[in-house]
């Protein structure tokens, strides 16, 4: 019996492990191998060319801008959806999920149709006003923000819904105005979720290919609009060297961010559960002249009894 059970478990584990290996590990190992094997000088020239440096700068600018936008509007829209009842609330909530289910290419094309300098709905007006959206930074930020928009929102909404508004109401009665309530209560409450949403959004922004490809025009040289993923794509397609080195660097940055946040999260969790729940020793209450002291001794010890009962 026992043998058969442990055999089943072994098979299950092997399947799970193989699945993850084929899906994630093998490609990662290949990328790493292709990065390392040509040697350090190839690595350096791949990441230090003018084109690569500009691509890194562009990717960083776009990622930071869209993460900032997503954080602000994700929290704002999250508060709107969870705290207020208004007609169209459900529709808004459903619409907010749309970017995750629409193909990035379609997103890019849609943006071109709206803002394109030649055929766009009001791209022409903007163009004559000297504002370029498509084939320049604003369009790329717009596309990246669009595809990663729900990531902060979807992390923050369940926490806001679960925590409810009682803490905010309590703060309100204690005299806190809207801004003080947001900074002192709401923000700390959603902080872990917000941080996680920001990381997901950052990872998505750094790696976005399809939508950015369409709106950027993938221009290299002067007025370069080529981000790192686009440059990787180009080098792969043109059979130029240096694609894997760039890809490797993208992976390292993303993994690093995730690990950092994971560590922070663990740290704050262990800080929270540091002292033991309620220790009877604490009930050796200090001699207190308060008239209610006697009754309180009883109250406190009963609380402990309740707590222990709950734990069992």
């Amino acid at each position: 019996m026992g043998n058969r059970r442990s055999a089943t478990r072994l098979v299950q584990r092997t399947i799970a492990l193989l699945y993850v290996a084929v899906l994630v590990l093998v490609p990662l190992v290949v990328v790493t191998w292709k990065t390392v094997s040509p040697g350090p000088s190839a690595f350096w020239s791949a990441i230090s060319s003018q084109q690569a440096v500009t691509a890194f700068r562009l990717t960083a600018e776009i990622a930071l801008a869209s993460v900032a936008l997503n954080a602000v509007f994700g929290v704002g829209l999250g508060l709107l959806i969870t705290r207020y009842r208004f007609p169209g609330r459900r529709l808004l909530s459903a619409l907010a999920d749309l970017p995750l289910s629409v193909s990035p290419i379609v997103v890019g094309l849609a943006l071109v149709l709206v803002y394109g300098p030649v055929d766009g709905w009001f791209g022409g007006t903007l163009h004559s006003a000297g504002i370029e959206i498509i084939f320049s930074l604003p369009g790329m930020i717009l596309a990246t923000t669009f595809v990663s928009f729900p990531l902060v929102l979807r992390e923050v909404v369940p926490v806001l819904a679960e925590e409810g508004i009682e803490q905010e109401q309590a703060a309100r009665v204690l005299g806190a105005n809207a801004w003080q309530r947001f900074l002192r209560i709401t923000l700390p409450v959603i902080r872990p979720a917000l941080l996680y949403g920001i990381v997901l959004s950052l990872a998505r922004s750094i790696g976005e290919y399809g939508a950015v490809l369409v709106v950027s025009g993938n221009v290299s040289g002067e007025n370069q609009t080529q981000t790192v993923p686009l440059l990787v794509g180009e080098r792969v397609q043109q059979l130029e060297p240096g694609a894997f080195q760039l890809a490797f660097l993208l992976i390292v940055v993303t993994v690093l961010v995730i690990v950092l946040v994971f560590l922070r999260r663990r740290e704050s969790e262990s800080k929270h559960s540091e002292p033991p729940a309620v220790v009877p020793d604490d009930l050796a209450l200090s001699a207190d002249p308060a008239p209610a002291a006697l009754a309180l001794n009883n109250v406190a010890s009963n609380d402990v009894a309740q707590e222990k009962g709950g734990l069992r």
């Binding site: 309620v278 209450l285 109250v299 406190a300 402990v304």
Partner: peptide
Amino acid sequence: QFADRLPEQLSGG
């Protein structure tokens, strides 16, 4: 004696 505790470390009462 509970001044430095977090609320989750207290009983309901």
